[in-house]
Design a protein around this nucleic acid. Structure first.
Lengths: 142, 142
DNA sequence: CCCCTTATTTTGAATAAGTCAAGATATTAA
DNA sequence: TTAATATCTTGACTTATTCAAAATAAGGGG
């Protein structure tokens, strides 16, 4: 069972295994870059009586444990994904809001090494490219 | 007068020069990484009858023209700055929320060249480092 | 310099996204 | 199986931001 991994993962982080948490992880594995609202909608397809607040709790708890990753494009609610620990980045279309994963060009984890971090110990580097996606530039160019 | 630059800048973008816009630019030059609310507060020190809505309008208009830059750390309202066109990045302390400017280590505008942009034409690369700042790690380590 | 056009601002209401807190429920260790 | 407590639910609330219509002000042409 695929849930086994998720269950084990959560136990390793000292978290109890609940239906809500498993459902959130499954949803985000199938649909990365989802907002809390989207996650709620998809969780409800399987488990209609999980509360909205609960999904927010789960998203916060799992993000805090590093099981999920959260990022916040301007003009967008926070988005979540399970793809963690691989230093990939995101490109968002400023026109339609579509989000794509992008591997960094410069090699392995380059952006984890800022020139001068002002004494901060860096844990995460989020890179967000903003631009116009193919479809939107076609649509605008016509 | 320093305002001359700002006025010229706005005219070049086809925008009318208003007290509110000048005030917002001045505030953000002195206090980069300010939220809309902070900008309102500081603008009000000089011009108490500029409305909140107006500041939001100004921030949106100037951002749209590329005169301001907006970025949105998780758990934070959107932040604004006048430093534009130099591909610098940001480090935010996840504990106290402090934001610092960071020049990218890898050279000039490296992150504007993603390996595979999925057909998107990239306009901006925002890099957000998250970590623990010196003060907070001292405070926690005690 | 004044007037006209229209960009900008104001006012007030409304929405979206997310948090807080207290009590009910479910998970897990013993 | 039971006890302890982590998690979930409910409902209200806060924060950040947007919308829309009427009032005002900027700047070009006479």
């Amino acid at each position: 069972m695929e849930d086994m991994d998720h269950s084990t993962l959560m136990r390793e982080h000292g978290l109890r295994v609940t239906r809500g948490r498993l459902a959130v992880l499954e949803v985000l594995e199938k649909h990365p870059h989802s907002s809390a609202e989207t996650v709620v909608a998809m969780v409800h397809q399987e488990l209609p009586d999980v509360s909205i607040q609960s999904v927010y709790n789960v998203l916060n708890d799992l993000t805090e444990q590093g099981i999920l990753r959260r990022f916040a494009p301007p003009h967008s609610p926070a988005l979540y994904e399970t793809r963690v620990n691989d230093n990939h980045h995101h490109a968002i279309c400023t026109s339609c809001g579509r989000v794509e994963d992008v591997d960094c060009a410069v090699g392995h984890a380059p952006c984890l090494t800022p020139s001068d971090s002002h004494g901060m110990v860096i844990q995460i580097a989020d890179v967000l490219y903003q631009g116009i996606c193919e479809d939107c530039s076609k649509a605008a160019g016509s």
